[in-house]
């Protein structure tokens, strides 16, 4: 018996609604090849991020930022001692790559979470309140959406000279919420006039209650979906910033690694240095994207209808 059957057939089994929903969603998700590939890739990256703590423990020269191989002071290719080789001052590339995965997750997920949180809250408020509030918030969203974010960041970094990774995360979140808020707003607008919202109004529910009890649970799945796409773009933005030299100089990220390759003129001389971070950036964004696509299939009611009719 598959999960979908479990959730609809066993009416007597008392189980929280969200578990049923999750199992139902999972059974649809499982059928998507894209989703499976994305999951496997993500698992690999997660493993990389977790194991990034190990190399420095083995030998302090594997410290990704400060550890330098005492015998090597130039870029060298892969060897038993340095699986991916070393960079121009003898730092281990493999341990840098592992830390990069950690930073990518950190930046991607926290920036995406923040932007989706902001976008969902603002979208719901704008959609539900309507009128002046709606106009104000949506014009603000428009302004931010058309602002060239890289340019603004370049200016900011020129002003403050050094940007910490958390500032970049916050910055990405502040620049990425308008897209989410637009989607959530339109969803809220369509929910607002549904009879079950009106029924809550007739029952005397306050606006807060309607927003949190009735609208939010119905838009959250969409927010989650958008979060996966936001992760993708957050990682790309961070990598781009770092590559251009506006990243956090005290953090090793894949973008930062690429910047070092380029800055030190190893672009075409050291493929063992250039390729791994480049491939990793592509693959991690791809895997989040595939995750999102598979979740899209789960959420798309047209696909769910087939099983729901009977």
């Amino acid at each position: 018996m598959n999960a979908a059957q479990l959730s609809t057939d066993n009416k007597n089994v008392i189980r929280p609604h969200w578990i049923n929903r999750f199992l139902e969603g999972w059974s649809i998700y499982k059928k998507s090849i894209l989703g499976k590939i994305g999951m496997v890739l993500l698992a690999v990256f997660a493993l990389m991020a977790i194991s990034s703590f190990i190399p420095p423990k083995i030998n302090p020269m594997y410290e990704p930022m400060s550890g330098v191989d005492p015998y090597i002071s130039k870029a060298t290719g892969p060897s038993m001692r340095h699986w991916l080789g070393t960079d121009f001052i003898g730092r281990d590339l493999f341990s840098q790559l592992l830390v990069g995965a950690r930073i990518a997750f950190l930046v991607g997920i926290s920036a995406a979470f923040m932007s989706v949180f902001l976008g969902t809250a603002i979208g719901m408020i704008a959609g539900y309140a309507g009128k002046f509030t709606d106009t104000l918030l949506m014009r603000l969203a428009d302004i931010i959406m058309v602002m060239p974010s890289l340019l603004v960041l370049l200016m900011l970094s020129a002003l403050f000279s050094k940007l910490s990774i958390w500032f970049i995360v916050l910055f990405i979140a502040l620049f990425r919420w308008p897209g989410v808020s637009r989607v959530i707003r339109s969803q809220t607008l369509s929910l607002k006039h549904r009879p079950f919202i009106e029924a809550a109004r007739v029952a005397g529910a306050s606006h807060l209650r309607i927003i949190f009890r009735h609208i939010m649970p119905n838009v959250l799945p969409l927010s989650f979906l958008y979060m996966t796409f936001q992760v993708t773009s957050a990682i790309i933005i961070e990598a781009a910033l770092a590559f251009l030299g506006f990243g956090d100089p005290s953090t090793v990220s894949w973008g930062m690694m690429l910047q070092w390759v380029w800055k030190t003129g190893h672009m075409f001389k050291a493929p063992y240095w250039l390729l791994p971070p480049g491939i990793c950036i592509s693959l991690i964004t791809l895997s989040f994207y595939m995750l999102g696509r598979a979740m899209d299939e789960v959420l798309d009611p047209r696909l769910r209808k087939e099983g729901e009719n009977y």
Binding site: H17, R194, P195, F196, E198, A199, A200, R213, H214, P217, N218
Partner: peptide, 10 residues
């Protein structure tokens, strides 16, 4: 419409 007047999440 009873299909619309109940919140699907409750």
């Amino acid at each position: 419409d009873p299909y619309q007047s109940l919140n699907p999440q409750l």
